[in-house]
Design a protein around this nucleic acid. Sequence first.
DNA 1: TGTGTTTTGGTCTCATTAAACATAATATTC
DNA 2: GAATATTATGTTTAATGAGACCAAAACACA
Lengths: 228, 228
Amino acid sequence: MFNETKTHEITVDVVILTIINNAIQVLLVKRLNEPFKDKWAIPGGYVRLSENLDQAALRVLKERTNVDNIYLEQLYTFGDPLRHPNSRVITCAYFALVRAEDIKIISSPELGWHKVSNLPPLAFDHKEIIEYSLKRTRERLEICPVCYQLLNEKFTLTEMQKSYELIMEKKLDKRNFRKKALATPGLIELDEYTKSSSKRPARLYTFENIQLNSKRAHFISNKKKEKK
Amino acid sequence: MFNETKTHEITVDVVILTIINNAIQVLLVKRLNEPFKDKWAIPGGYVRLSENLDQAALRVLKERTNVDNIYLEQLYTFGDPLRHPNSRVITCAYFALVRAEDIKIISSPELGWHKVSNLPPLAFDHKEIIEYSLKRTRERLEICPVCYQLLNEKFTLTEMQKSYELIMEKKLDKRNFRKKALATPGLIELDEYTKSSSKRPARLYTFENIQLNSKRAHFISNKKKEKK
DNA sequence: TGTGTTTTGGTCTCATTAAACATAATATTC
DNA sequence: GAATATTATGTTTAATGAGACCAAAACACA
């Protein structure tokens, strides 16, 4: 039995989510080798003896995507014996929410963003892993305004609302949202406005510093008032 | 580099919490071999090739403690290169909340319950793992009444309140607690009372079925009204 | 100049929750 | 039957949040 355990392999896989073109997108790499050749996968790689799991996730990410200096959080460890067809690979999944503007990716046939609402064929159990990361993101959103990790540094309240609607998959009332958004600790009103559009310019906002406190952001509710 | 990864070992470790003698206690085994001989550890063991992580955790638990059929939840995966002095062992930690009455353990010098408020010297990073499990338990408590997993099948409201106070480490107002406890979905009032004590008997309650819904149980608040 | 589109801002109602607080009833023991 | 310890119970106040609901201002473009 002890020898048996020696043949495990352990990897880290990283789900990177962002918002592009008004859609939640995940960074995927195309597999060049079997198994699952030509399927898409979230970036991953083996854990080295000298590094801990967080470090492995960051290194793998840097190697595969040249993405650096982002906040990663351990998501869940997937260890089904059949998740890898040839060998026994246990993977520790990580996930990150990033600003699209912070990541300079040369989109190529082997690396690119994909809408989570329309995923290509995925390798291994990576569909399950991505879905789990979306669930975790929703849970995060109930606790703190994760949009500061997803939106560009400067953003409009409409963009902020859109990010909430995308994550929660529901429409929100504009006036109610703005009222509460403006009450969010750390939100700073700038003296700048959007220009490019052909509509009324929107004021820009930013977050003063990263807020990971436990205060709930009450932007979402499940209740629907009944008309009488 | 690939060979390097072949030398990982992966284990599961299980934090089992319960309430005994008005204290949160964790099940520990004494290590009989090096490393950390004579220190205490949470039950653990290697993951077999044929089983997934959940199965491994359940099997390890059964082997080490003869405890069966309890709810386990994956906690976190700890993979610091130095967490094991001799080799590279990554552990997937699980945790469980159990009823003391469900577990028939012959307490021995090598196996027994220990108050989490007064832990003996622990092996590896098991102190950290236990602390993390307590944090998770508090988070669970904010979402659902975990006491149904910790208390005996039949319990008094005072016992229920005590379990909340132990987990949250704060005192609660008796009348406010009972009001909300009685409103908990699934709580059933029995026509039975405690007898043994020399005081007024207390009514017994039970939970109708396991409730893992997302409705928050508002038993706890951080706010303190100011006297005027 | 007018049309179209988007941003912007406030109030009301209703429901939920937190928190504070005091006394009577029940059983045991002596 | 007196003392004691525990259970049991309801109301009020204040705060917060959800949800519903419109009109005016700003800009671009034709």
